[in-house]
């Protein structure tokens, strides 16, 4: 079907463009809002590979919760625009060389053999749930504890103020 191809290219280009805005925009609020668009586009792309649960969770967790947290912290901290210009320091120069080199390196090496069986099945929620709560039950419980630890840790770190 043509429609899915169009959808993929539309949202892939949206994701890339706004990802560039995220790392280039000096205003952190605008950067975070661009990130919202990038992640939303990725959620749409998940729909084209028949992963609706992941798409829904992406919108629910990333755009609905994590990025709102970012915006809150930015507004709480009153961050000014970044002072140092991009590429003004050797670290930044090296950083860009490394990341661009990484991209080129992997693309040139991608002429390799990734084994693809080309079979997209429609996974029902029941299958995912069974895998999640039977085979991976232990990891699931561990994740619960991880989140609990994160909540407690974040509260303690953020509220502790040294006096005197």
């Amino acid at each position: 079907m043509m429609l899915e191809t169009v959808i993929f290219y539309l949202f892939a280009s949206l994701a890339v463009i706004f990802a560039l805005v995220v790392i280039l925009h000096p205003d952190p609020v605008k950067a975070t809002l661009s990130m919202v668009i990038t992640l939303f586009s990725l959620a749409v792309i998940y729909l084209t590979i028949k992963a609706p649960l992941i798409a829904a969770l992406q919108i629910l967790l990333y755009t609905g919760a994590i990025l709102v947290l970012f915006l809150f912290v930015i507004m709480l901290l009153n961050i000014q625009r970044e002072i140092s210009l991009p590429f003004s320091k050797p670290v930044q120069l090296w950083g860009s060389i490394v990341s661009v080199g990484f991209l080129i390196g992997i693309i040139t090496n991608f002429a390799i053999k990734i084994k693809i069986e080309e079979s997209v099945k429609n996974y029902s929620l029941v299958l995912i749930a069974e895998s999640l709560f039977k085979e991976n039950a232990l990891s699931f419980i561990a994740t619960g504890f991880l989140l609990l630890a994160a909540v407690v840790g974040a509260t303690i770190i953020a509220t502790k103020v040294k006096r005197g």
């Binding site: 809002l33 919202v36 609706p52 649960l53 829904a56 969770l57 919108i59 629910l60 755009t63 609905g64 919760a65 709102v68 915006l71 029902s124 929620l125």
Partner: peptide, 22 residues
């Protein structure tokens, strides 16, 4: 008619925050 209708509802409803922040 989606298998994850309720989840989709919660996800999309959560996007309302951005209008207020903007």
């Amino acid at each position: 008619d989606s298998d994850i209708g309720a989840l989709m509802f919660l996800a999309l409803a959560g996007l309302g925050v951005y209008s207020l922040i903007c």
